[in-house]
Design a protein around this nucleic acid. Structure first.
Lengths: 189, 189, 189, 189
DNA sequence: AATGAATGAGCTTTCATTCAT
DNA sequence: AATGAATGAAAGCTCATTCAT
């Protein structure tokens, strides 16, 4: 039941928003009464918190695996990170939506922890960029900080438009983004 | 007064969210009573609607000016569009925040119109990309649709992190993003 | 209306208790809707607070007047204080009930202030006792502190049993209590 | 377990109030689950009822012993009754608090019985006063009824201020009260 | 003897909105 | 143009109680 409540919450938070979703809404779908909610969670915010932690922890985990793979180049790591993000939308799209949009409804204490982890995620990408520059895989005349924000924006924004069931699959989009990033879109002779 | 209400609404919607801002909150700052609100606006949603239309219309206007400038290349147009978006954050950052985040609180009728305009904005960029390809300014082996989403993501995401008062000014960020996009981040030869 | 809400609140808090009285209960009697309550008071606790302050302030005021009357002896002052307390029950009985019984529902901040004032009330009586001892009006071999608690108990307890419409009027009860206190109940010679 | 539940209930009812104490609160301390409560008691009110009966019955018992002691004078009986009350606070203080403050939460049926016993307690003291008057131990010009309320108030009020661990022990306070009552506080030549 | 899950009624509070003045 | 009073619907949350296991 606890799991079911969370599943429903994600669904509803993603579609209607945290504030716009009432406990009633969540429990109606599960065909139990409102009171039951409070048997499993102390408050509405606690569900949100659980969702946020689960999401960012999983994301960081899979990211760390990619980064610490000794067999891959930094270019390959970047490619994989982008693919992973796109690929996630299929299974985790709703969670991601909730994560980015409803973050501000957390209490300060949790908000800070979550934001730290979110920043860590960005730092990890930046590390790949920086190491890649050192190893001569990426050009060195662009500030890694801004470059990273660019990459992050490209990938994250896809949550607003990418449809897994659309004509172009995640693998393809990731490949295109990777090419854009690496080679640029300028026509070369 | 009507203008003042809107100004305050933008400020508060941006900082606290649409749902989280009460009419009382808005009018408190203006030192008038809640009732006054309804002399100028029919409902809370109407203010939001006005904000959304104003924002997207201005954005589209300035975008169209850039696109239809006969004197500039498509590469230059792209650069300018990116710069314009970054530059906007300084003066229009709050509006932008409200635009992206609170869109869903519009009634269906207005939501559709707004989304159409938002899509138009994307179409315009895509047009620049497509024409640039035709004219040989951009490479032709990448789908303009996805490329455009990439560009849009890069630029729009800056609303989440770009601080106008930060160390790197909007001109610089725009230049870096432009270089990334055009030339790629790969180390050459 | 604000006054009416308070009047009703006193009535209901006294008869059913603070916790047991719902905002609904209060407003039902006034034939207005629950929402109206919050137009006049920020919270349920605020009404209680107002009641408590009003009560203790009035009580202290009238007490100070008695104490600082230069024309009366300390014995007379003691008599008057006791009478005043008994007399109050008629007009302020409900307030007194609420005061003693519902004090603990105040937030800490207010509770402290109220308790300070309540202690001041006791201190004032003790002062009369002490000064009376110095002036030779009261015997000096009993600790004023405990004596004061005794007096206070006698008088305050009457809130639990004294009925203004009963056979013995407040003047009489005060006189009897005063005699008991001054002369004792022992049969002399 | 049944005893443990009652012990905890007294503690919590005294400190937080009957309404303010949840079954959960009680069982949390005992490290068992809420459901267990209903194995031992039919309802929350039943515990309160048990507390009330236990308290008043014990009190009446010890009072009757004092009253029917053939060896003591009525003055001595009065002294003992007062001492007994003060002395009780140490071991039974919490019970007393609950008794006086939470009485109103009983259902009518039980409330009536409890109030009858409470009145009996007062009647018993009044009997001592009346018999003492007849025997010439107490003055006869004060109505026994009011005198009794005075004595009761003095003694009962100590629940609000008397601290067993304070500087003056129960024996002393009882003695002082007794002296006040018997001899009065007026300075004699 | 004890648990865990669920219920349902009730509570305080918030707030967009209406409207007579 | 603005105020002040009132409404009513809904929200988050608490909790005594029930009951199958």
């Amino acid at each position: 039941m606890k799991g079911a409540i969370m599943e429903q919450s994600i669904e509803l938070f993603a579609n209607k928003g945290f504030k716009e979703t009432s406990i009633q809404d969540i429990m109606d779908v599960l065909n139990v009464t409102k009171g039951t909610f409070y048997y499993y969670y102390k408050s509405k915010e606690e569900v949100l918190m659980d969702i946020q932690y689960q999401y960012i922890n999983r994301l960081l985990d899979s990211q760390e695996k990619i980064i610490h793979d000794e067999e891959t180049s930094y270019q390959e790591k970047l490619h994989e990170i982008i693919f992973k993000l796109l690929n996630d939308i299929e299974k985790e799209g709703l969670r991601a939506k909730v994560f980015f949009r409803e973050m501000r409804h957390l209490t300060n204490e949790h908000l800070n922890q979550i934001m730290e982890k979110r920043d860590q995620f960005k730092e990890n990408i930046q590390l790949v960029v920086e190491e890649g520059i050192k190893k001569g895989e990426f050009r060195s005349d662009l500030p890694p900080n801004i470059v990273t924000f660019g990459i992050l924006g490209m990938a994250n924004w896809s949550y607003f438009w990418f449809k897994p069931e659309g004509p172009i699959p995640d693998v393809e989009v990731a490949k295109i983004f990777y090419k854009m990033l690496l080679e640029g879109i300028e026509k070369k002779e």
